[in-house]
Amino acid sequence: MELLKNIFSPLTQIKGRTSIILIVVEAFLALLLWEIVGQNGLIPVPSKILTSVVSIVTSAYFVDNLFSSLALTFTGMGISIVLALLVSYLSLIPVFAPVAKFIVKCRYLTLTGLIFLFTLLTQDGHQLKLSLLIFGIVPFFVTSLLAIIEAINVQEYELCKTLRMNNWQTLWEVVIIGRLDQVFEVMRQNFAIAWMMITMVEGLSMSEGGLGTMLIKSNKYIDLSTVFGILVIIFALGIFFDFLLRNLRHWLFPYTKIQVKK
């Protein structure tokens, strides 16, 4: 009874098992409702989507497409994080600050209008996809990283001075090493953007395959069960990588676990 009262009262903290039960029950009810109401509708019901997921996952072409998407995402993410870190750290040197500011503003540039330019600048479909992915991610990465740097308490820099560190040592201690955990968190958050963009860029050059290619092809033939099946796979993989990166962060930077607990 107390539990029922708690889950409906505002600002009540629900933790551990109760929270998991709540998620599972709500998800089950939503799927059940969808299954019952959607029987005669255009959108496939969960049982059909599940069958489709099984059929996609067990198909011969799935693994190749999955690895193609993962390889592209990880390569794009890797290059993007290196570029974004470089730009963000360099932004602390006055001469590079305008470049960083311009890159931040590039968030408002639409990729669609630049596809032709990128096609001219790149040599093949793979490079085109990769460069568009990087161009799409880097401004978001840089924005988040600059926000982290701006939020640093000035007392940390002062502490470095009292510990007789020079500017380079201070940069290393406070901005680079001291914020590595937050960089990792930004990476986790922006992985979602990269994962979302992958389907879009894969549609531009379908020769290498990928989950995006599979999605576009199924959309073309209005094979909605397969479309939803692929969406479920993309969604589940996204959640899995999010979970993986979050736990990896706690493992690499144990103090972040303490911060979460507090």
Binding site: Q155, E156, E158, L159, G178, L180
Partner: peptide, 17 residues
């Protein structure tokens, strides 16, 4: 010069990492 005098801030700043 900065570094010759130690400071202990009100919120006792240490490197959290």
């Amino acid at each position: 010069k900065a570094g010759q005098v130690g400071i202990v801030a009100q919120n006792y700043i240490l490197f959290n990492h």
